[in-house]
């Protein structure tokens, strides 16, 4: 299957890419192309031009910035999975990356591309919400950062403006004592996308939850925080009962979607089941068990 014809541009710099975007209002940005090309082959997307940012060196690499880690938008899922820096200081992302697609997809697909595409069943969005990450974006008027809570706005929709490029992802280090992270996912048996996925970051002191963030993907039209579940655990010990009570309300406030594979009610049930698993794992890891 061939995509419909398009003009192809391969800018060498971010400024060149932004200038091309200004000249081609309907152009699409392509990096790894593992969401866009399948859509183009099915003619679900027929952009008149592609701007391939895959050769822009500034968008590559994972850097230690002290309290945070900066991940270039072009970083592949494989690179996230195998980064020693991330494995030590932000292990949630490598854990999540192993769940994405398959080996070949992880070799080619990029973190920036996945986030900008904002598939409602993608894995990273849950982790972004749990980590309180931010994305850096660049437009012709300058750069700004967008917090994960504001980034995902709807089905395949983000807070990025049409003339902006996502350049990097900033994640906090979560290697402090008492900090635990986990991701639990119920994958669609064929596509491996999340029917429901729950990511947790928790900070525990004296066996009491100091702070917690829970991100849910796959269940609604975009990834969202499970704030009721967070509130249910804040200031409390992570006992079996408290974890179960929090997991029970994890889908509250979410408008879960139903499709041929999973009804809305079943998805809500899966959110609870995945929350239970992720909360248990994060709790164990926070204690170093």
């Amino acid at each position: 299957m061939y995509p419909a014809p398009f003009e192809y541009h391969a800018p060498a710099s971010l400024n060149e890419a932004l200038a091309l975007m200004a000249q081609n209002a309907d152009a699409k940005i392509i990096a790894g192309g593992h969401s866009l090309l399948p859509a183009m082959k099915l003619r679900l997307a027929t952009p008149p031009a592609l701007i391939d940012i895959g050769r822009i060196a500034d968008l590559k690499g994972i850097k230690d910035m002290g309290e945070k880690i900066a991940i270039g938008a072009l970083t592949t899922h494989h690179e996230v999975e195998h980064s020693v820096l991330l494995r030590n200081a932000c292990p949630l992302l490598p854990e999540v990356a192993t769940h994405i697609g398959d080996r070949q997809v992880r070799n080619r697909g990029t973190m920036g591309g996945s986030l900008a595409h904002a598939d409602p069943a993608a894995d990273y969005p849950a982790a972004m919400l749990a980590l309180g990450a931010t994305v850096q974006v660049q437009g012709s008027g300058g750069s700004r950062s967008i917090g994960a809570d504001e980034l995902f706005t709807g089905l395949f929709s983000t807070a990025l403006a049409a003339n902006e490029i996502l350049t990097a992802i900033h994640v906090p280090k979560t290697d402090a004592k008492g900090s635990g992270v986990a991701y639990a996912k119920f994958p669609h048996p064929a596509s491996r996308y999340a029917v429901a996925g729950v990511a947790v970051w928790v900070s525990i002191k004296d066996d009491t939850v100091q702070d917690i963030r829970i991100g849910v993907t796959g269940a609604a039209d975009h990834a969202q925080r499970a704030k009721r579940a967070e509130d249910a655990l804040k200031g409390k010990p992570m006992t079996e009962d408290n974890i179960a009570a929090a997991a029970k309300v994890a889908s509250d406030g979410l408008t879960t979607i139903g499709d041929i594979y999973a009804s809305a009610d079943y998805r809500a049930h899966l959110v609870t089941a995945m929350a239970l698993e992720a909360l248990h794992s994060a709790h164990h890891r926070a204690h170093g068990w």
């Binding site: 392509i30 082959k41 391939d52 080619r108």
Partner: peptide
């Protein structure tokens, strides 16, 4: 459709599905 892997080749040493890479890339 990027699923079966029959078209896998090594690109700079990494396995990729060549039905999901443009020749120009």
């Amino acid at each position: 459709t990027s699923q079966c892997g029959a078209c896998t080749v090594l690109m700079n040493g990494m396995a990729v599905k060549s039905c999901t890479v443009l020749g120009v890339q």
